[in-house]
Design a protein around this nucleic acid. Sequence first.
DNA 1: AATACGGGGGA
DNA 2: TCCCCAGTATT
Length: 346
Amino acid sequence: MQFNKSLIAWYSVNKRELPWRNTKEPYYIWLSEIILQQTQVKQGLPYYEAFVHQYPTVFELANAKEEAVLKLWQGLGYYSRARNLHATAKYVAVELDGIFPDNYTDLLKLKGVGDYTASAIASFCFNEVAAVLDGNVYRVLSRYYGIHTPINSTEGKKVFKALANDAIDIENPAEYNQAIMEFGAIQCKPSGPDCLICPLIESCAAYRKNEISILPVKIKNKKPKNKYFNFLVYISDSDKTVIEKRVGKGIWQNLYQFPLMETEKSIDETEFLKRLNSVESFQDVTLFNSVDIVHKLSHQHLHTKFWIIKTQELPEKGTDISQIEDYAVPVLIKNFIEEFNFEYEI
DNA sequence: AATACGGGGGA
DNA sequence: TCCCCAGTATT
């Protein structure tokens, strides 16, 4: 059997039951695809359920506050996805009367929708012949055809795109796209793939040449950069603290945090007080964590200290401590809030 | 052509 | 530690 027909046959037997597989409604497909970008099904699933429950149609999502969307997205990462999700919902609801574009070219124009997502929606919802190319597809194709071109190089993207367009089943692009991704996700896994029960074992170049473990080839990531964060956790006599919105560029845009003092290296209390007192009058300061909390992102390692500052008056307008859970915060801040337990402290 | 952008999980 | 994940936008 051909490569694509074999995958479809495999898929019909082995596919997982997932909520977005029971619909062709573009809103649900789009929502699931945005959530699943660089995110495993297991991690994204509860978020998908929450969004569908909270925003059953594109109109509810469009009418929501961005703050509410970010709060529901909290913990999933890559927050530009949530901001773009909301912006696109507003665009589709208002400008397109709630009707999503019905083809690859127009879908691609939506914020947060790139080549992969446009292909996925176009094929799943409208059966357009548009081959998806995600991490799973790269792996399956590179192994099956024995391609050593790095998948994250410009050349590689070109080569694999051509291969994907060549392999797609033009009679059933939706099934084929689902099939090759599912196959990559649960059988042709990054490590320890189940080759011995693989329907493609006879014709798989990587298996024949014993290259399963070295394919796909990928250009290595650069080392993450170290950063040193000091969060100023104020507690006033009237049980307020200071929390502020992250604006501008960089990570966690539009999420909330305690006032941040970033330093070149890890600092001690003397150094901290020196920098703090150059701005403010006396405070009672204690360090929450004696050892830096290292929050690891894919491109940054954040060495973090939380400084508890008890004070009569806040340096700026405060927020009731009882309300901090309402704000969308990075996981680093969320973990601190849970561990610190303000209620016990005040 | 590179880099920024999160967080969780597997080996 | 390092790699991967239903990638996209910006530089």
